[in-house]
Nucleic acid binder design. Sequence first.
DNA 1: CTTGACCCTAGAGTCTACTCTAAGGTTTAA
DNA 2: TTAAACCTTAGAGTAGACTCTAGGGTCAAG
Lengths: 137, 137
Amino acid sequence: MKIGELAKESGLSVHTLRYYEKQDLLLATARSESNYRLYDQQALGTARFIRRSREIGFSLEEVAVFLSIRADKPAHVCAEAKTLAENKIVDVEQKISELKQVLSALHKLSDACCGGNESAEHCSIIDALEQSDQEAS
Amino acid sequence: MKIGELAKESGLSVHTLRYYEKQDLLLATARSESNYRLYDQQALGTARFIRRSREIGFSLEEVAVFLSIRADKPAHVCAEAKTLAENKIVDVEQKISELKQVLSALHKLSDACCGGNESAEHCSIIDALEQSDQEAS
DNA sequence: CTTGACCCTAGAGTCTACTCTAAGGTTTAA
DNA sequence: TTAAACCTTAGAGTAGACTCTAGGGTCAAG
């Protein structure tokens, strides 16, 4: 299959597939006489594997680790994959908690503001951003 | 006050302050004979205003809108500020919900994996990433 | 034989918000 | 007077993951 079909089947763009090749994540199975990239079913599996890993939030660097485990499973142990997943969980939890703080600050801003067509002379949003220090805990 | 002191007082770096000037967010009040940027208390207020807005998660583009409201309050209405805050709330809620889905997918991966020093031959993380379609709802 | 849909490469551009560098000039304190 | 600690500019670099462009070749249908 050529790159266009692989793109369709995998849900990745042609550009992205070529980019992944440059990053050594997904090499073409072969080249046609006219130098077109050719892929087999295994390559399609890998493309989908990468897409799923990305959707779950892994970076390309992390995906590369998964791919190397996947490529030679007997040479690796479960702990390697699990560590990656656990670290990612910590990252994501951290991000969520940061965003929740941001959200609470935003709600405070928004709730205090009348939001009407009154002049912003005494807009509580602007005023709140003016305050010297406000900790939201 | 010179840029170094403004940096210290505002909690922004000298580089960042100059960057904000380039972005027309915070102009120097004046220049000394030797062409040093000079700032007054009002500029310090603006610097802090920007920092607080950024901490709450507004982009520089959004901060620019706040600054223009702040600069001429009578010419603006509360609705403008509130709209910005509400849109940001929607964005942040969206991001949080995406991250929660990611987190749940990660937990599924991680929980299924023994994580031990066994060969990754049957690692359930790698296997799960291999699956063709798994919707987490 | 031409049109359109493919494919190729190298390399540049995008996004946001900085962050840093090079190569200088100024001020201050000892 | 000299060294440290400031300040200036224009412009490049950083992160991550694409995304696109220019300028060209290839292939199948009508």
